[in-house]
């Protein structure tokens, strides 16, 4: 912490204008690398409080850290990339709200305390970055999943359980869980095995949300997706696959 605090102090010393334009509000020495790795070099990138990342400040269970991203205060969100600066695999999930509210609830594995950030691209091509620090004793990424040691999950791999709730303010909420070990490949002898793609559509097949998953999603991931009133449907479908080509497919009935 001392080093990056020192960098922040140095940045402030250069003058308020420069600091305001460049300083990472989460004061992380990895921000520069993250920006270079995940966001196009020519793109306009701004820190923006309208992108909310909600997670506990302290997470005791590094294998199952709840995170909610909400970019609904921004207009015309095309895609959102979620990453954790200090994770050995930084990318967590990418989603495109194709009719669903531009937000997503999910669970992640963290290897150590880290900023967890969401970068939302709006229609004008600029990236809006929000985030929060999560402190944890860590170890979440290099442990084998419980599923990888159990014969039971193989029978249930890809099984989806779900439910639809009406929302008080209109529209609907969908919560769904997929049985999957979500192994990162960082535990000795256990290869990476995780969900790469999930698509939510209404019963007629009109897309609502496209989710691209990466290794740090938690085992048996649970997703929370909100559907605005205009897109609420009589039923929904989910389809996708993992990195070994296993299909995930289910109907979500009310």
């Amino acid at each position: 912490m001392n080093i990056h605090h020192a960098i922040a102090v140095a940045a402030l010393a250069l003058g308020p204008g420069i600091a305001a334009a460049q300083t990472d509000p989460l004061d992380s020495p990895r921000w520069g690398d993250m920006k270079k790795e995940f966001l196009p070099a020519a793109a306009r990138v701004v820190f923006d409080e309208r992108v909310r990342v909600i997670a506990p400040l302290t997470a005791e269970n590094a294998l199952n850290v709840p995170v909610s991203v909400d970019a609904s205060a921004l207009p015309d969100v095309k895609e959102v990339l979620v990453f954790a600066d200090f994770n050995p695999i930084a990318r967590i999930v990418r989603f495109e709200p194709r009719g669903a509210r531009p937000g997503l609830g999910f669970r992640i594995k963290l290897q150590q305390s880290s900023p967890v950030r969401a970068a939302a691209r709006t229609g004008d091509g600029s990236w809006h970055v929000g985030g929060t620090w999560v402190n944890t004793t860590g170890g979440g990424c290099t442990l084998p999943s419980t599923g990888s040691a159990s014969p039971e999950w193989q029978k249930r791999l890809g099984e989806v359980s779900s439910r639809v709730w009406p929302k008080k303010e209109g529209g609907e909420r969908i919560r769904l869980r997929v049985i999957h070990p979500e192994d990162t490949g960082l535990a000795a002898g256990i290869p990476a095995f995780y969900i790469q793609q999930l698509d939510l559509a209404d019963a007629a097949g009109t897309p609502l949300m496209h989710i691209e998953g990466f290794e740090p999603l938690a085992e048996n991931p649970v997703f929370t997706i909100d559907i605005p009133p205009a897109r609420a449907a009589s039923g929904y479908r989910v389809s996708g696959r993992d990195n070994n080509g296993n299909a995930i497919t289910a109907t979500i009935e009310k």
């Binding site: 997470a59 269970n61 709840p66 989806v160 439910r163 869980r177 497919t249 289910a250």
Partner: peptide, 26 residues
């Protein structure tokens, strides 16, 4: 505050799972 946070982490996953139904595969 810390115990509530820990208890949610420990107890909530099983409780929310009880509210979800296993869907039929298409």
């Amino acid at each position: 505050d810390a115990e509530y946070r820990r208890s949610v982490g420990q107890l909530y996953p099983a409780l929310e799972q009880q509210t979800l139904r296993t869907g039929k595969a298409r």
